Simulated scan of single mutants.
Amino acid sequence: MALLKILLAEDHHVVRNGIKLVLQSQADLSVVGEYDNGQAVFEAMEQSIDADLLITDLDMPIKGGISFIREFAQHYPHLPILVLTMLDDSRHLAEAFSAGAKGYLLKNIGAEELIYAVRRTSAGGQYLCEELSMRFVEQAIQEQHTKSSIATDPQYDLSERESEVLQLLADGYTNKEIAEQLFLSRRTVEGHRENLINRFGCRNTAVLIKRATGLGLLR
């Protein structure tokens, strides 16, 4: 059985020891380097340490965060990065994957999920922890329910012309430009805009567009 060599970057000593114990409970996993900041990881790489995977926190002193992931991925693209963090918001998640991470885990995961994620990412795959995956599924279900409610609500049953005007307003066109595109009078376009604002209960066009976007009525 081939030994999978892991670098572990975590600035909390107790947490780092716990992760190490979980990993090294497996015969095929070995932590070959432990660090409390990103700079120390780079120094180890410069010494040609032999490794197959980096597990790293996002919040570390000296060198850490998304910038550390991006820089590491650029210098060592052959070495997968698995993020293990407390940060559970979509912004950090998206930025981490965009920067080059291959996996994203929350620190409250169980040992089995951590081990599975390590093996999957080291084999060339990607992984998002179950808690975040299910959260996105639940959001998608809620959005679908919202769209279904909108589809049956006469308040949002727009005519084809109203939909066209709404979309062009969202695209930044003026009343005059919309009138020219749709071969309508400017007064007619202004009438559609005012009707939409009133129907959606908005104060102005900007609020109208924001609400229509949230309701999924714009492309």
Rank of each mutant, 00 (worst) to 15 (best):
A140W: 07
E131V: 08
A151W: 02
C129L: 07
F136L: 13
D171H: 00
A111D: 11
Q126S: 13
L158G: 01
S148W: 10
L166K: 00
S149N: 15
L132V: 10
M134R: 15
R135W: 06
H145A: 15
Y127L: 05
I115H: 05
L168P: 02
L168K: 01
Q139W: 06
E130F: 04
E160R: 08
Q144E: 07
R161S: 14
E131G: 05
Y173W: 13
V118D: 08
Q142P: 02
S148D: 12
P154R: 10
N175S: 08
E138W: 09
Y116K: 08
Q142K: 15
E143C: 08
L128H: 06
G172Q: 04
Y156A: 02
E130A: 14
Y127D: 04
K147Y: 05
R120N: 12
A151P: 01
A117N: 03
S122M: 14
R135A: 09
E112F: 02
T146Y: 04
Q139Y: 05
P154Q: 09
E113D: 10
E138L: 13
Y173I: 00
N175A: 10
L128I: 14
V137D: 06
Y156F: 12
K176W: 05
A140H: 09
E177C: 02
L132F: 10
T174D: 13
G172H: 01
K176R: 07
I141T: 12
E130N: 11
A111Y: 00
I141C: 10
F136E: 03
Q155K: 13
T152E: 09
E162M: 12
D157T: 02
Q144V: 07
M134T: 13
I141D: 06
E177Y: 04
Y116G: 02
Q167S: 12
A140V: 07
S159C: 12
S159P: 00
E160P: 00
T146H: 11
Q126P: 00
V165L: 11
T152I: 14
L158A: 05
Q139I: 08
Q139G: 04
E138P: 07
Y127R: 03
A111W: 03
P154G: 07
G172F: 11
E112N: 03
E160G: 00
I115V: 15
K176A: 04
A123N: 11
T121A: 12
Y127K: 03
E113G: 07
Y127A: 05
E177W: 05
A111T: 06
S149K: 15
M134H: 13
G124Q: 03
E177A: 04
E177F: 07
G125E: 09
S163R: 10
L169V: 04
Q155D: 11
D171F: 02
S122F: 15
E162G: 01
A140D: 02
L168C: 09
S163M: 13
V118I: 15
S159Y: 14
L168D: 13
R135K: 11
